[in-house]
Simulated scan of single mutants.
Amino acid sequence: MNELVAESRRRIRRRAIKDFLGKLSERRGAWVGVAALTFFLVLAAVPGSLVGPLESVATASGDFLAPPDGQHLLGTDEAGRDVLNLVVHGSRISLTIALISTVISLILGTTVGITSGYFGGKIDTWMMRMTDFFFIVPPFVLALVIAPVFVEVVGRGREILGFRTSLFVILVVIGLTSWSFVARIIRSQTLSLRERPFVDRARVAGSSDASIMLRHILPNLVPQIAANGALVVAGAIYTETALSFIGLGDPLQPSWGTLLSLAQRAGAASAGAWWYLGSPGVCVLTVALGFVLLGNALDDTFNPRRRVIP
């Protein structure tokens, strides 16, 4: 009997996944987003296999700000390094920072949102006032203020989880300052879910508040978390790029923002080195657009009120 029930649940789950993928595939934006993100995720996964090790000033293979040619498809920088090599290696740093900071943001936002919406009362009021502060103040402004302080506290030149101090600080700061949007959405959904019959049955059965939130409410929030998570990644990429551009990045582990900063300092714009500025800039815009398109497609698929003919 238990095996039949388990098999029935597996069939229902497979059917639900199939229906979801079918509806998602109807969104042209989803295909564009997935294609763009797949391309850059491959670059970030195996940069060394595609363009060799990260070039340094000592191993530079070109001339000063040389335009694209057969040997250097995206030209060279002010030190003669291949820009294609730098951009491909920079994709790993930029995407890793954006994805990990998004995970931190989703964990914080989901925790605050569920707790606030489920308990209500003074807990809800206090948490929402805190959320309002982070919601009103732009994440970039908060990150700009907090990041230098964190760098001094943690110390320069160290490596934490494979990141040098400045990059690790950017990662943490973005995660700690971009969760308010998620918290508000999760809270609004939790306010509705806590009144559902299955939550009342769980209370009658003696389930604790923590068990109800984790086992009954959280699974129903996964679609919203996934849809909004894709949008948070796009914002995280922009914030990381901006922070690295103003000098908080690490030239030894260059991200796309760091490359833009180096190009600006080298006078690439005045020298007409469009390839140096354009290459990382196009990458940032393409990846951010890919996540936005995918996030909108997921939201349209999960939210019946937004389902329109693609």
Rank of each mutant, 00 (worst) to 15 (best):
G113M: 09
S101L: 04
I104F: 09
R14S: 13
A35S: 14
I225F: 07
G272A: 13
V51S: 02
L289I: 09
S105Q: 08
V137Q: 05
V141T: 15
R92W: 06
D299F: 10
V42F: 11
L214T: 11
L293A: 02
K122Y: 13
I104Q: 00
V233D: 01
A147E: 08
L86R: 06
R184T: 03
R13F: 11
I104P: 00
V282A: 12
Q189Y: 08
I309D: 15
W31F: 14
L54I: 09
S279W: 01
A66M: 12
T110L: 08
S270P: 13
R307T: 11
G70H: 05
T111H: 08
A6L: 12
G229R: 00
T258P: 00
S244H: 03
V153Q: 08
T258L: 12
W126M: 15
P197F: 12
I185N: 04
V169D: 03
V284T: 02
G33C: 04
V233Y: 04
I225R: 02
G281W: 04
V173L: 06
L193K: 00
R194M: 03
D250Y: 03
V282E: 06
W256Q: 00
A36T: 13
A183E: 01
P67S: 13
V83L: 01
A183P: 00
D82C: 13
V46D: 10
S8K: 14
T38H: 10
L43Y: 07
S56R: 05
L294M: 11
A268C: 09
D200Q: 15
L193D: 02
A16E: 15
K23L: 15
L214H: 10
F133C: 07
